[in-house]
């Protein structure tokens, strides 16, 4: 039998999941302006898929199930002077919406902070409980 999930497990694993999300956002933003010679090789945004991990009724944490590539298509631009341009003089710019990625980044940071706050509260309460009767 595995031991029941504590608040530390719940928030800790949620923090890992949020960090993973922040990593994908960072990758997406880093590749936002990258140019490619064909639509197939162009960078597409990475998105983590979150999944609930239930321990017992009402107690659950979250984990990254898998990372999928977004269906957003790279944008084609006509730029005959570009060294990577194909025969028609077209290049493909990574299919990343940087505004959306920035929003995602801020949301991730906020939710990470929330989990840290939960952890801190749980820690103080546990320590207070340990001091009971002294």
């Amino acid at each position: 039998m595995t031991k029941p999930m504590s608040v530390f497990d719940i928030s800790g694993r949620a923090m890992s999941a949020q960090l993973m999300r922040l990593n994908t956002t960072a990758s997406n933003l880093a590749n936002a302006g990258s140019i490619s010679g064909s639509a197939d090789t162009a960078f597409r945004a990475l998105k983590p898929v979150f999944r609930t991990v239930t321990d017992r009724p009402g107690v659950a944490t979250v984990q990254v199930d898998r990372v999928v590539t977004s269906t957003a298509q790279p944008t084609r631009r006509h730029e005959p002077d570009h060294p990577l341009a194909d025969r028609n003089g077209d290049v493909w710019e990574a299919g990343v919406d940087s505004a959306q990625e920035m929003v995602e980044m801020i949301e991730t940071a906020r939710q990470y902070q929330n989990n840290v706050q939960v952890l801190q509260t749980a820690k103080t309460l546990t320590l207070d409980t340990l001091k009971l009767g002294q």
């Binding site: 928030s11 979150f50 009402g58 107690v59 659950a60 944490t61 949301e107 939710q111 749980a122």
Partner: peptide, 25 residues
């Protein structure tokens, strides 16, 4: 109170999980 703390922590942990239903006592 301690069990409820775990439940609320679960809700906060799953703030970004699609189809997660928040629970409370």
């Amino acid at each position: 109170r301690s069990q409820r703390l775990a439940m609320l922590a679960s809700n906060i942990a799953n703030a970004a999980t699609p189809n997660y239903k928040a629970r409370d006592i």
